[in-house]
Amino acid sequence: MELRQLQYFITVCEELHFTKAADRLGISQPTLSQQIKVLEDELNTPLFDRIGKKIRITEAGKLLQQYSTQMLRDLQNAKMSIAELQVNQRGTLRIAVLPSDLDYRMGSIWIAFHQLFPNVRLEIIPTIEIQDRVFEDKVDIGIGLAALPDQRLVQIPLGTESYSLFVPANHTLAQRVEIELEELLQLPLILYPVGFVGRKLLDDCFQSKGWKVQTMMDNGSAASQLQLVKAGIGFSIHPHALLVALSDDELTAIPIVNHTPVRSIELLYRTDRYMSAAATMFISLIEKHFAEQAKNP
């Protein structure tokens, strides 16, 4: 049994189609079929049920898929670990982060990390599918909303963030020290479009009180929303920590009381993933960043 054969096998499992798998591997379909047949002969059991042009993984195939996937992942982790010894912290660190306000606030992290590891390429991927990207090995680390515990993941709580109403600093509302959730129903709001994580959290908060929020404008960019607020077009709702990060004198954030919208943030990565020194330092920088925000709400 060769690693190449296992890689071929896993690709067929993912595609469930020999021709598509062969195209993806860059080999001919007969070559792929012959290699899978060699594997089946060695194990003395079929790995796929062939039903016309369709295939289905057998129980034996499912077992081999589980163990071979782990084997290849361990091999990749070993290669990464050895490469880290051979070169001075090079390579790529892939980070999935919630789009808009969260990735918008993390510029200082990217800068600090680059100063510590100038040879490591950071790949920042804004996405709402944080867990999926981590599970599929498309990213090394994810930063997003806290989810239910999963034994396949290391989940590090980063803290909770309450939401506030963002208004122009020269508006009469800016004199308020707090505002009730129900009052927001009467205001011209500029929020994320339906489907955005931040919008769902707010919609759920209003719906729990039997209310439905109406917006005057939907806008998927935090930066654009805040420009519109400063221009006096309307008001927006964001985590209070966003204003702390911006230090913008033209904006005021009024805490929302009586059923305050709150979100919990966590950092996550696969339990079976090798974490390089660069990745470990990145995690430390993130934890420190959020701890400092908690001290200065």
Rank of each mutant, 00 (worst) to 15 (best):
Q151R: 14
V134F: 05
F117P: 07
V120L: 05
E161L: 04
I124M: 08
Q131N: 13
D132M: 09
D137E: 12
K138P: 00
Q151T: 14
E161S: 07
D150Q: 12
I143C: 08
F135V: 10
Q151Y: 09
I125P: 01
L153V: 04
R121G: 03
I128A: 15
T127A: 04
Q115K: 08
E123D: 14
F135E: 09
I128T: 13
P149K: 08
R121N: 12
K138T: 00
P126M: 10
D150W: 11
I125L: 12
G159N: 06
I128N: 13
I125S: 08
T160M: 11
A147T: 14
T160V: 08
L153R: 04
L145Q: 13
I128E: 15
R152Y: 11
V120N: 03
E123T: 12
I143Y: 06
I156Y: 03
F117R: 07
I124R: 04
I141L: 15
T160W: 02
I128Y: 10
E161H: 01
I128F: 13
R133D: 09
D132C: 03
V134G: 02
F135L: 15
T127K: 02
A146K: 14
E129G: 05
G144Q: 10
R152I: 08
D140N: 01
V120C: 05
E129S: 11
E123Q: 15
P149M: 08
A147F: 06
N119H: 15
L158K: 05
Q151K: 12
L153I: 07
Q151N: 13
D137G: 07
F135G: 00
P149R: 06
G159L: 05
E123R: 15
G144P: 08
V154Y: 11
K138A: 04
L122H: 02
I141A: 14
I130W: 04
P157W: 10
A146G: 02
E161P: 00
L145C: 07
D150A: 14
V154C: 13
K138F: 05
I124Q: 02
G142L: 05
E123F: 09
I141T: 12
I143G: 06
T127G: 01
L122R: 00
Q151E: 14
K138C: 02
P126L: 11
R121P: 01
T127C: 03
I124W: 03
T160R: 13
I130E: 00
V120F: 04
I156F: 01
P118E: 00
I141P: 11
V139L: 03
R133Y: 15
F117H: 14
A147I: 14
L158Q: 06
D132P: 01
V154S: 11
L148W: 10
F117V: 10
I141V: 15
E129P: 03
Q131L: 12
N119E: 11
I141K: 14
L145S: 11
F117A: 09
T127N: 06
Q155D: 08
T127V: 05
I156M: 06
E129Q: 15
R152A: 10
D132E: 15
I128P: 07
D132R: 15
P157I: 09
I156C: 04
G159Q: 05
G144C: 11
L158F: 07
Q131C: 06
